[in-house]
Amino acid sequence: MADVTDQTFESEVMKSATPVLVDFWAVWCGPCQVQGPIVEEVAAAVGEKAKVVKLNVDENPVHAQKFGVMSIPTLMIFKGGTVVKQFIGVTSKDVLVSELTKLIS
């Protein structure tokens, strides 16, 4: 699964043609270690129809701050450059896949 950074966020997320799920995470965050494999499963389930990426908040503080992330894991779904859905705390594969599926045209 791809990592996005403060440098690539604009092109990879904001300008993406497909919906993007961004997992805001950090190495020291226990629940994020649980969320990681779930997000991998989501990526496998949605295939090419949506993008699934993660952003390390330690290394990329600009975008974590810009989107008001104050708790991790936070998961945001972007479509057309705007946040359309946000989840705080560990979120199940079923919920994420169903929300992404709704946005896939």
């Binding site: 965050c29 226990g30 629940p31 330690d58 104050m70 708790s71 991790i72 705080i88 705390g89």
Partner: peptide
Amino acid sequence: LRGKGVSACATCDGFFF
């Protein structure tokens, strides 16, 4: 305000403060 300054897990969210 949960996740916007309200938290029940310092180890998860302390970093943002």
